[in-house]
Design a protein around this nucleic acid. Structure first.
Length: 204
DNA sequence: GCGCCGATTGGCT
DNA sequence: GCCAATCGGCGCC
């Protein structure tokens, strides 16, 4: 394969199919590490590699918004099909973006916690108020702000949405740890971080 | 109706 | 390390 062929292969972007998400949330979370998130919110293109994601196990996970199938207006997205976005407002302040996983309603979801900024850095810096680049998208609220994600993305099928996720591989194997910022099921190893990344968030 | 809490973050002591 | 911001859901009268 010549130089041109290589470039074409490298730039080929394969949208993750719905079947990718029709698996347990912990599997989806692990395999999302290295995938590419591309946002075209309001015509501005920003993109990054997923370096941190957390699985939530739906109705059986005490830390999930859908624990015990408690259902209300804001968590309706958890009952939608795999591959849909589920976006919720955290602490009344920050948007947090998830992708629905599994084969049955409220089986699970994956919270995107950090991306390595790759494209559209000026837009990300503007949206994030000029913070240090390392903090552009290191944390679920920061990630959403950097990519322009708000409630308007909630419940959209990812493959039709203004924010899409493409195939990609991690630079180093994902490492599993406890989830961050929760008070229940704190020891479940459902957070996945790309080994050695400098772009992930950290517990306080 | 009221108070508390949360899958967060930024600012200040 | 501590706390406010700011909203929606919940438990509790």
């Amino acid at each position: 394969m010549g130089m041109k062929g290589r470039t074409q292969v490298a730039s080929q972007r394969i949208l993750l199919p719905v079947s990718f998400f029709r698996r347990p949330a912990d599997v989806v979370a692990r395999e999302l590490i290295g995938a590419l998130v591309v946002s075209s919110v309001r015509g501005t293109r920003t993109a990054g590699r997923i370096v941190e994601a957390e699985a939530y196990l739906g109705h059986r996970d005490p830390a999930s918004h859908g624990y015990r199938n408690r259902r209300h207006a804001q968590n309706e997205g958890l009952y939608g099909p795999a591959g849909n976005w589920y976006v919720y407002l955290s602490y009344g302040v920050h948007w947090c973006a998830n992708l629905v996983a599994g084969r049955t309603p409220n089986e699970g979801a994956v919270l995107l916690r950090a991306v390595e900024p790759l494209e559209g850095l000026p837009a990300m810096r503007r949206r994030r108020g000029g913070v240090a680049d390392r903090l552009l998208a290191a944390g679920p609220g920061r990630l959403s702000q950097a990519l322009g994600i708000t409630r308007s993305l909630d419940q959209w099928p990812m493959h039709e949405a203004v924010v899409q996720v493409y195939r990609g591989d991690p630079l180093a194997p994902p490492v599993a740890t406890s989830r961050i910022g929760i008070t229940r099921a704190v020891d479940w190893p459902l957070r996945f971080v790309e080994g050695g990344t400098r772009w992930a968030s950290r517990p306080r």
